[in-house]
């Protein structure tokens, strides 16, 4: 069961990543090629996903759009995980007033809705890739910070940490030797699970017209643009970008699920002694 899930997810993800990496440089196709004579054609062999209201190929734009989404998702998740793990680990390891200060900061951030905060960040800059990454990354580190702090707090009280203190280890050595390796798998899992979240966030921003500039393909801007023709019964310019958001999301979640089972302690004791 777990094996089937692993292979399905891995295969889908590999295909998506390959498509995103290989198609744009290798093919000579121009995603921006406008052909008004061909606008809003339903799926045909030459345009498998049809064309949009400017006659551009939806499949090709989906691939380009996913490229943006994946880039935003991965980089933003990395930013969020690094920021969150650092804040959480510092709060958990130092305790006392630094812990209280950092956690109130987290609470303050958490009290504002993600999207609102994201819009605020984007609004300060011109629309583009980096503001979107910053907007997603800087709003998603809160849960990671809480998770890492809780983990560090529980590890700090373990007898093996006490034995290390008694053995003369410095705080730094305990952190590097015992705490970080213990927290890393969980923080990594949180990072992977954040990639789909960040993809959705980017799409939402773009859909609202705050993310990528309108002419540049992104799954969010495509859905946004396709919205108008949807009422006329032309479903393909919105459906396919939507699927391109959902399928990689599920594949990443599937991989994360397998990973979660790997690091859960019950797999550790195969032999009961």
């Amino acid at each position: 069961m777990a094996r089937a899930r692993l292979w399905t997810s891995a295969t889908i993800l590999l295909a998506v990543v390959l498509a995103v990496l290989v198609v744009p440089p290798l093919t000579d196709l121009d995603q921006q090629l406008v052909a008004f004579s061909d606008k809003l054609r339903p799926p045909t062999p030459s345009h498998p996903f049809g064309t949009d209201d400017a006659g551009r190929d939806v499949l090709l734009r989906c691939v380009y759009g996913l490229r943006v989404s994946l880039l935003v998702g991965v980089v933003a998740a990395l930013v969020a995980t690094v920021v969150g793990s650092t804040v959480g680990a510092l709060a958990g390891a130092l305790g006392g007033w630094p812990d209280r200060l950092l956690m109130r900061l987290v609470d303050a951030f958490a009290s504002v809705p993600h999207l609102l905060l994201g819009i605020f960040v984007v609004a300060m800059f011109r629309p583009g890739l980096w503001p979107v990454i910053a907007s997603v990354g800087l709003t998603h580190w809160l849960s990671t910070a809480r998770l890492v702090r809780a983990e560090v707090l529980s590890l700090r009280e373990r007898p093996y940490v006490e034995a290390a203190i008694s053995g003369g280890s410095t705080r730094w050595r305990i952190a590097v030797r015992h705490l970080v390796p213990a927290v890393l798998p969980r923080a990594g899992l949180a990072a992977v699970l954040m990639v789909p979240h960040a993809i959705w966030h980017e799409s939402a921003l773009s859909f609202l017209g705050l993310g990528m500039p309108g002419h540049q393909a992104s799954l969010g801007t495509m859905i946004h643009a396709g919205r108008g023709s949807l009422l006329a019964g032309d479903w393909w310019p919105t459906l396919f970008p939507g699927l391109f958001i959902i399928v990689p999301t599920l594949a990443i979640a599937g991989l994360a699920g397998v990973w979660r089972e790997r690091i859960s302690p019950r797999r550790r004791s195969e032999l009961m002694l």
Binding site: Y160, E162, A163, S166, R177, H178, P181, A182
Partner: peptide, 13 residues
């Protein structure tokens, strides 16, 4: 110092 529960007292890694 030696504690009661060896499982808790040694870093599993």
């Amino acid at each position: 110092v030696v504690f009661q529960q060896p499982r808790q007292s040694a870093d599993p890694r």
